[in-house]
């Protein structure tokens, strides 16, 4: 079970606003999905290593050689707000 407070906490972490009407359904849906997921708790996984990459390769490093950067107007072209050749955002300290 995941309750209202947990939903709000997770939404805060995810920078997701939930309207008042969205909170309870979200709690119910997440709870039901988590119930189904809980099945994996029955498995004995002692000593089983986790797999984060199915591809068993290593390295794959890039030589320290420069490429052409994007022209600035291209970099900024899709931005919702631009000022002084940069991306304009509300100040984090405001």
């Amino acid at each position: 079970m995941i309750d209202r407070d947990e939903v709000l906490h997770v939404a805060r972490l995810a920078r997701l606003r939930l309207s008042e009407q969205e909170i309870e359904p979200m709690a119910a849906e997440l709870s039901s999905v988590l119930d189904n997921i809980a099945k994996i708790e029955e498995l004995n996984l002692d000593g089983v290593p986790p797999t984060s990459h199915v591809v068993e390769v290593t390295g794959r490093l890039r030589a320290d050689e420069p490429h052409e950067p994007l022209p600035r107007e291209v970099a900024l072209a899709q931005a919702p707000a631009v000022s002084d050749d940069g991306f304009l955002v509300p100040s984090p300290q405001a």
Binding site: A11, R17, S19, A79, P80, A81, P90, S91
Partner: peptide
Amino acid sequence: GVRYGLRAGDGQDLVGMYTRTRH
């Protein structure tokens, strides 16, 4: 909402901009 795509909640503080854009 910073570099591309939708931005909502302009005029809000940073967190407000983030959460509304994503909402």
